[in-house]
Design a binder for these strands. Structure first.
Length: 227
DNA sequence: TAGGCCATCTGGTCCT
DNA sequence: AGGACCAGATGGCCTA
């Protein structure tokens, strides 16, 4: 992953020229095993969660425990404070009674936990829509890999769209239709894999409506015609 | 065992 | 004042 982090966006895009290559490079391979089996909710420094339940299960469990503190949790809390050199006696502690302060701190912790879980849910949603090898035998994309892959996927889609637009302009020109003419040649990026007209894809609109995205346009009468 | 990745805690800062 | 966001610190788990 160090290699991944050190890559600039462009370098990474060049490296992963073509999305299949990118996903192959990021999928880690099946040998690493499933992160699902590894679990997502590793217990924190408190160490009072012996198992690794689902993220939200952890959130609920800890949030519930933060309402009423047991003696063990009090001890763990103080141990953490001492270990990190933030023990009682500072200016902040003088301002607030320890019990009240701890209760506030726990509620802040729970909120932060929820926030991070929401962030992870969003990342899961992102993983679900970017094409890579979704398989139990393939390790889940890391956060950084997910973001980098998503970025490159967006760039690729933008390039493909641009190429499609140029193609439309070219075809319209051939039929004597008024169309924006670009002097630039077709981008060398046009592998068949990124064409929306590959096998199984819907046929393009016979009227070459502006949508031209491979999916019928609701605004085009030809797109709405029954075959 | 080292390194990568992650969850959690925490204090600080900004915003409403 | 309270909540959201952020970054640093810490420790656990997993893989090479």
């Amino acid at each position: 992953m160090a290699d991944l982090k050190s890559l600039s966006g462009d370098a990474y895009l060049a490296l992963s020229h073509g999305y299949a290559a990118a996903t192959a490079g990021l999928a880690y391979g099946a040998a690493r095993g499933s992160e699902v089996a590894r679990g997502y909710g590793a217990p924190g420094p408190g160490g009072n969660l012996a198992t690794a339940p689902a993220p939200h299960a952890v959130a609920v469990a800890v949030a519930e425990s933060s309402g009423e503190q047991s003696g063990d949790e009090d001890d763990a809390f103080e141990r953490r404070r001492r270990r990190r050199g933030r023990g009682p006696g500072g200016a902040a502690d003088a301002r607030r009674r320890p019990r009240e302060q701890r209760s506030l701190r726990l509620s802040i912790n729970a909120r932060e936990r929820r926030r991070m879980h929401d962030l992870n849910d969003a990342l899961d949603g992102l993983r679900a829509v970017i094409p890579y090898a979704h398989s139990p035998s393939v390790r889940k994309l890391s956060k950084i890999a997910t973001l980098l892959l998503a970025k490159n996927y967006i760039l690729m889609q933008a390039q493909a769209l641009d190429e499609m637009r140029r193609l439309v302009a070219y075809l319209n020109q051939g039929q004597g239709l008024a169309a924006p003419v670009t002097a630039t040649p077709l981008a060398p990026f046009g592998q068949a894999a990124v064409y929306p007209f590959s096998a199984g894809a819907p046929l393009p609109c016979p009227d070459k409506c502006t949508a031209f995205s491979g999916t019928p346009s609701a605004l085009c009468k030809h797109c709405n015609e029954k075959p």
